[in-house]
Design a protein around this nucleic acid. Sequence first.
DNA 1: CAGCCGGGGTAATACGTATAACTTGACGCG
DNA 2: CGCGTCAAGTTATACGTATTACCCCGGCTG
Lengths: 332, 332
Amino acid sequence: MTRPTSRDVATAAGVSQATVSLVLGDKWPGRVSERTAALVRETATRLGYRPNLAARNLRLGSTRTALLVVPALTNEFFARVYTGAARVAAEHGFGVVLYPSPDGTGPARDPFASARAALDGVIASSMAAHALHAIGGDTLPLVMLDSDPRATGSAAHVNLAMADGMRQVTEHLLALGHRRFLHLASAVDSWTFDTRAEALTTLLGPGTELRTVRSPLTADDARTAMEAALAAPQGRPTAIVCDDDILAAGACKAARRLGLRVPEDLSVTGFDDLALATAVEPELTTVHLPAERVGEQGMTALLAVLEGTPWTAPDIPVTLVVRDSTGPAPAV
Amino acid sequence: MTRPTSRDVATAAGVSQATVSLVLGDKWPGRVSERTAALVRETATRLGYRPNLAARNLRLGSTRTALLVVPALTNEFFARVYTGAARVAAEHGFGVVLYPSPDGTGPARDPFASARAALDGVIASSMAAHALHAIGGDTLPLVMLDSDPRATGSAAHVNLAMADGMRQVTEHLLALGHRRFLHLASAVDSWTFDTRAEALTTLLGPGTELRTVRSPLTADDARTAMEAALAAPQGRPTAIVCDDDILAAGACKAARRLGLRVPEDLSVTGFDDLALATAVEPELTTVHLPAERVGEQGMTALLAVLEGTPWTAPDIPVTLVVRDSTGPAPAV
DNA sequence: CAGCCGGGGTAATACGTATAACTTGACGCG
DNA sequence: CGCGTCAAGTTATACGTATTACCCCGGCTG
């Protein structure tokens, strides 16, 4: 009634366990005659044999499994990062397991053990870096996603060209004549957002005005933040730069509630280019972040690190997608 | 340079490996004196000892890991299912690993092995049921999510009360005076959607009209489907029942492109209650599906099955959330 | 004082696999 | 004919843990 082992297959086929392992391992060509190999394979499938991965992992000292640490999977961006990472992993016979509920809601007394599998390496989003040492991931090969290249020492880095993205946003808005800006920024403290904020500040030349409001990354918070910011009609911003499409969508909505038309009275930009960006009306002008590619490169980097190859790559380029939420600055 | 084992801890502490295992296992109270226990624990942390999970899994014959099979994590609904399942799992010292890229895009020659970990059980969404036997999951304890209770024999089931959800939609729209309906249905063949379609057909009494258009679950497809359906001004539907918020959002957009106002000229309803539902304008009237609870109950069910306890529970209730995308049927 | 008990620990083992090291027969070749 | 070679397997072992069965010794009891 219990699952058949390689030894069961061996006795059933009248060979030794080693032979079974050799055949099914598909290495060592010529070690086993084609005739017995076929016999072994046939009995294996007949018995429904599945290798015990725990045993194999123990023997090989490697699980071919990576841990992906992200804040929340319900954020489409990170779901896509996972997808990309899992794809590349599968191509190399690797698996990807997620660190559950790092948002702090879950219990996970021993978060490392809760991954249940021995791990070969860790890919961590900077937005979840605080969880890293609790995981014990600092003792494993590590790849950081979107984190300060100067900070995390030896770890490999996969970064998006956030500053350049912000440059594109700024130039686009300046060309449209905007001079008074509001930065609807994430309340999360991370390299990602810091870099953007810094880029925005430096790129906006003299003769411009910039206010910043920090808000959690939810549409509701965006709305209340907006209502406060747009209250005064005179001197109010004409362009809202949001750190996130969700914020941007919330901003558009708040604007309309306040009787402002987008983009005629107010331009709004986002980041990420989620499905949401084209679902709302007007469709969002936003910086497209190739999330899948982040995951892919993260996994590629980890594989390189595991092989001892030093890995480095230029920042992943991002591109502004101009849609309908931005337009010429109002005449006043 | 290699990771310390329990034996390393043992020699360092001057005890036997068995003692280390006993202490760190925290069972068998009284088997070890408090003094040596403290010594062992101290050396363990000093050496940075982490138990080798592959070895433990092999020894115990169980990995405390479940496989969750879903179509795509980028769909917020399934991301939330995962979150719920992972939470309950963590509470019981279990892990959840995802079946990567079952949408067929990925390579995954041996999808089962690509889970990399030996598994204790499987939780499978019916929308990915076709992948099940390829995974070999049919030989493991199985919990089915939203699948035909009559179909999958012995497996435990966790179902949403889809028919009741559709009933609420129908009654809401009928009460608003609608008589001509369009069902924007998913192109995917599954119990979920079949149940809804059947419920809709039976609930709409005489004197009503129902057309059905099947479409992939993307906003773009929804739009083209809509444009075809609404082309003829006379006899066009006044209420659009969508199988999904994404479809609903697409439908709203298409309607506006065609010069129809929502909800004045056209009512639209969705399913799921994703974040999208409140991000678009008008906010969607939609059937709220407690996705997290699906994941939680799925995991709970699996845990019960693993203990040999027969598990059964009533369908998870769903509730219509009335927002701004539905209104009285237009006069004509 | 012998016998027994139990606290506190240890030695031994099995889990299922991959692979290194060894065996065996057949065969070719000098 | 004897030896090296090679194909085709097999035997043995280790991976690191959890747990069972055992052991030792001090103290209590009859």
